[in-house]
């Protein structure tokens, strides 16, 4: 893929043109990313104790779905988010968010360490020392993302 950057001080706005031979997955990913960039950059609207907050996506350590509600965990606080887990997964998949179990998405930038565990799971220690498990089902995807081989379960 060829990336061509042109600096034009006279341009009224930033213009992105994607030229492709065939609209493949990679092209779709780029389009998806550009289309959702402002939403992704804006972070999350979160609720806590009746108040609304704006949480930057880097602040979130992990997101969990409990009884049809979605909660975002920062280093020292829990917020209720107004979107579904699958929506977050879809919107942030090109950033550093990754599904680690049926009910949890983790921010890869906020993981302190990883350790394989009994039965194919991976133990995740977050920046705040909180521990989570990557289930057997999702462990190969993480390994693949980190360049550790991957698709063996």
């Amino acid at each position: 893929m060829l990336l061509k950057l042109i600096e034009n001080r006279d341009a009224e706005d930033t213009k992105i043109t994607i030229e492709y031979r065939k609209k493949e997955e990679q092209v779709n990913k780029i389009i998806h990313f550009i289309e959702h960039l402002s939403e992704i950059e804006s972070g999350f609207t979160a609720k806590s104790e009746g108040n609304l907050f704006h949480i930057n996506s880097n602040e979130i350590l992990y997101i969990e779905s409990v009884e049809r509600k979605t909660f975002g965990y920062t280093a020292d606080h829990v917020y209720e988010l107004d979107c579904k887990l699958y929506e977050i997964e879809e919107k942030y998949r090109l950033l550093d968010y990754m599904r680690i179990s049926k009910s949890c998405i983790v921010n890869l930038k906020r993981i302190y360490s990883l350790k394989p565990d009994f039965g194919g799971k991976i133990l995740v220690t977050m920046d705040n020392n909180e521990k989570l498990y990557i289930s057997r089902q999702y462990a190969p995807a993480l390994k693949e993302k980190l360049g550790l081989g991957g698709r063996r379960s």
Binding site: L108, K115, K145
Partner: peptide, 16 residues
């Protein structure tokens, strides 16, 4: 697991 964990964490740092 501890040895592999060190390798995983090293790759994670590279990613981060």
């Amino acid at each position: 697991h501890r040895i592999r964990g060190r390798e995983y964490t090293k790759k994670l740092r590279e990613y981060q």
